[in-house]
Amino acid sequence: MRLILFCVGRSKAGAEKELALRYIERANASGRAIGFAGVELRELDESRARRPNDRKADEAKAILGALPPGAELIALDEGGKLLPSREFASHLGKRRDQGAPALALVIGGADGLGADVRAAASLTLSFGPMTFPHQLVKIIAAEQIYRAMTILAGHPYHRD
């Protein structure tokens, strides 16, 4: 199963980008041994529309258009479900075992995710009720994907 981390907005060079990529590289290395085809970071351009609802609609169209066929969508949103790391790992493992071709985690733009993306999501997750900068959410998501790989592999990275 492929994992794709979709992010609206492009990363600038620097420590944040490097850290997110480091976790993705680690997840790729750990995931191959346990049946994951790879983890990919895809950055989509932010909409230039003037109104927030128009921007969210444009970005939703780009996200949904970029999804591979049969991909399950997980939306990352501050109003989503709080899920412990072990349960997130279990969700990924179950989807892998069920033969899902791909799973996409989506981070919206500055105005959030459009209604079409939220409606298409099988799961909406939150990293907490606080609002975080997109660069930090990207790092947290990449780290949680890596953590999930280590949990599924029985690696001691995650400690209870």
Rank of each mutant, 00 (worst) to 15 (best):
M1K: 08
R2E: 07
L5R: 14
F6C: 07
V8G: 10
G9M: 13
K12H: 08
G14P: 08
G14S: 12
G14Y: 09
E18G: 09
L21D: 09
L21Q: 12
R22Q: 10
R22W: 05
I24S: 03
I24P: 02
E25N: 14
E25L: 13
A27C: 07
A27R: 03
N28I: 05
N28V: 12
A29R: 15
G31W: 00
R32P: 08
A33E: 11
V39P: 00
V39I: 15
V39Q: 08
V39L: 13
E40H: 13
R42Q: 14
L44C: 06
L44Q: 04
D45V: 02
S47C: 08
S47I: 05
R48C: 06
A49Q: 04
R51S: 13
N53E: 15
D54V: 07
D54H: 11
D54M: 09
R55C: 10
K56A: 12
K56T: 13
A57H: 04
D58N: 07
D58W: 01
E59Q: 10
A60D: 03
A62W: 00
G65C: 01
G65E: 03
P68H: 13
G70D: 14
A71E: 08
L73T: 10
D77H: 05
E78P: 08
G79S: 13
G80I: 06
K81L: 15
K81S: 15
L82S: 13
L83K: 03
P84K: 08
S85R: 01
R86C: 06
R86N: 10
E87Q: 10
F88S: 06
A89L: 01
S90A: 14
S90P: 02
H91V: 06
L92H: 02
K94H: 09
D97W: 01
A100M: 00
A104N: 12
V106Y: 05
V106P: 00
V106K: 03
V106I: 15
G109K: 05
G109R: 04
D111L: 05
G112N: 11
L113P: 01
G114Q: 05
G114T: 09
G114Y: 01
D116E: 15
V117F: 00
R118S: 00
A121C: 06
S122N: 01
L123I: 11
T124V: 11
F127P: 07
G128H: 09
P129F: 05
T131G: 08
F132G: 09
L136Y: 10
V137G: 12
K138I: 12
K138D: 02
I139W: 04
Q144I: 07
Y146F: 13
R147V: 10
M149V: 07
L152V: 05
G154P: 01
G154H: 00
H155T: 02
P156F: 01
Y157E: 06
H158E: 03
R159S: 07
R159Q: 14
D160R: 03
D160C: 00
D160T: 12
